[in-house]
Amino acid sequence: MINATQGVTRAHLGMLLWALFVGLSFPAVGLMSEGLPPLLLTAIRFAIAALAVWPLAWRNPDRWPNLPGLALYAFMGLCLAGFFGTMFWAAHRTTALSMATLYVSVPLLAYCLGRGLGVERRAWRLLGILLLGALGALGLAWAESGGQFGELGFGIGEAAFFVGCLASALYPVLSKWGLGRGWLSPRSALRTFWSLLTGGVLIGLLGLTWESPGALVGMTWSDALLLAYLGVFSSGMTFWLQQRATAVLTPGAVMAYSYLVPFVSMLLLFIDQPQRIGWHWLPGSLLVLAAIALLLRRDAIKRHAAAAARSNSATSAESG
Rank of each mutant, 00 (worst) to 15 (best):
Y73S: 01
L31S: 13
N312C: 10
P186N: 12
A50L: 05
F193Q: 06
G114M: 02
V106W: 02
R191C: 03
L17T: 13
A143T: 00
Y73H: 09
L109N: 14
L140P: 00
E120R: 05
L174Y: 02
Q148L: 12
A19L: 00
L205E: 04
P55S: 14
G320D: 08
F239A: 00
Y111N: 10
S258I: 12
S316L: 15
A317G: 05
A71R: 15
F149I: 08
D272S: 13
P37G: 07
H280G: 02
D299K: 03
G82D: 10
F270D: 10
L282S: 12
T86M: 11
P61M: 08
T94D: 02
G214L: 06
T238V: 13
P38D: 01
T315Q: 08
I129S: 06
F26S: 08
A309F: 07
Q6M: 14
D272H: 11
S185E: 04
W281S: 00
E120W: 03
L72H: 08
G284P: 05
A245D: 00
K302V: 10
T86R: 01
A245Y: 00
V22C: 04
S195N: 08
S265C: 10
L20Q: 03
L97P: 00
G150P: 02
L241F: 10
L131E: 03
T9D: 07
L190A: 02
S316N: 11
A228M: 12
D272W: 07
W240K: 02
L286R: 11
A159V: 07
G155V: 14
G147W: 02
L282Q: 10
V288T: 06
L208M: 09
A291G: 08
G236R: 04
H12I: 07
V254N: 06
G85L: 06
F75W: 14
G231Y: 00
G182C: 14
L126C: 05
G199L: 06
S175R: 01
A71W: 15
V8G: 01
L36S: 02
A253D: 03
Q148D: 15
H280W: 08
S168T: 10
G146F: 04
G180K: 12
E318K: 15
L286G: 12
L295E: 03
A245S: 05
L282V: 15
L196Y: 02
A81C: 14
